[in-house]
Design a protein around this nucleic acid. Structure first.
Lengths: 226, 226
DNA sequence: TGAATTCAATGTTAATTAAGGTTAAAAGAA
DNA sequence: TTCTTTTAACCTTAATTAACATTGAATTCA
């Protein structure tokens, strides 16, 4: 994802640029308002982060001009102007978010991701993958993989393994599992859990370094390692 | 435009509600977290404004549950919690904006309008286009495209794919789909849905990164990617 | 103290039930 | 007609329930 970042304070600019790059964004920074348009045309960013007070051309007019040629690209203002009127003007000229300085990097990133998602540029937030010994578990696809082959898990199996996977080598309450997978912890669901634990043990048996250990009266311990 | 407003401070709540109504929004205010879901189902708002600290059920879990049945409705958190971690959690559970108290009414309204515009671009504007793996789907034209060739979908096929497309990588209730495509969820329509899922699976089969996963007793999960 | 006993908790496997998948034929629309 | 939608029939699979087996900590007894 490409971010056009317009900022004239070199010190702040550098910190923000680097923090964004650590998150795998490709960042182009521009300090001079006059130059923004040509860089925009050439760089073709997915999102713009604009400071408002700039030499030569302010952020508002830049946003307006960008909007003329692109009605959908998300624009975030980042500025020391804290007045509500300034914010209103920001939205008026076509901005989609307005962040007051000083701000936390985490917040900027959350807002950038949110806007990218809203405009469909970002397919999904969590494309996570768990490593469980020699297995890989992809919750998005309900898939347990090993050596390139994948086993499809059912919904309950996947939810249970998900909980175990995010608690490797830690104790997990029976009750916690029951609440998250079945929504309550009645007697019957409790026996149900036993059945699914057996299934997962079966699937995971081919890696001897993995073990679902019972802690009687408490829950389970998902041991993964040598 | 209908706003679901969840707030337990009656004094603030009343002021905000009235200010929104002056701007021609239809506002339904709920103070008890437990009641939100049923009001949501019945009121069918266009946007939600949620306080976080509530009796019975906090705003985060409310957002999460709303997201289960509706992946695209905008959610704004409005809260006295000022920590960055609270904001991050808000975005994590599916929120689209986060406004710290005290806030100006003008700002809330600007942000509400901004989100409505952003999501309306998605739902109503002329040339909206969904990327689904290597496919493209153009709901206006009932067209599913891949490598330049287009397949015309029927009305029901297109509606169903539309719902899936705007909820990629999320769980979607069977009931929600039935209500939106057929208007009710009787037994016969329910079997009808199965038939159309089979058709879409058939159309989408040529991209192995796409999968409509069944969640028995719940609904579907439209996995795209990885 | 240690061995034997007990019993609730959990393991395992199989049967049952209900949800959904698939396909084709019938019914409606255009 | 021709295409879409609905209905129907039959098939497959996940989730639950049930039945019986095993385990291990707690209790009792020697």
């Amino acid at each position: 994802m490409k971010i056009l970042y317009v900022e004239d304070e070199p010190f702040l600019g550098r910190i923000v640029k680097e923090s964004l790059e650590v998150r795998d964004f490709e960042v182009r920074m521009v300090a001079d308002g006059k130059l923004v348009l040509s860089v925009f045309e050439e760089f073709k960013p997915d999102i713009c982060v604009l400071d408002i007070m700039l030499p030569n051309k302010d952020g508002y007019s830049i946003a307006q001009i960008i909007r003329q040629s692109n009605g959908s690209i998300p624009i975030i203002f980042v500025t020391a102007k804290t007045q509500t009127e300034d914010l209103l003007k920001g939205f008026e000229v076509g901005g989609n978010d307005y962040l007051r300085k000083p701000f936390s990097m985490e917040e900027l990133i959350a807002r950038v991701n949110n806007l990218l998602q809203l405009t469909q540029k970002l397919t999904s937030t969590s494309n996570q993958l768990f490593k469980i010994g020699t297995f890989e578990f992809v919750p998005q696809r309900y898939e347990l993989r090993k050596n390139g082959t994948a086993r499809k898990l059912s919904h309950r199996e996947a939810m249970l393994l998900h909980i175990l996977a995010e608690n490797q080598n830690m104790n997990i309450d029976r009750k916690t599992i029951l609440m998250r997978v079945w929504g309550d912890d009645s007697f019957f669901n409790s026996r149900n859990l036993d059945v699914y634990i057996t299934k997962l043990r079966d699937y995971l048996r081919e890696d001897p370094a993995i073990e679902i250990i019972t802690i009687k009266g408490v829950g389970y311990h998902f041991a993964v390692g040598n």
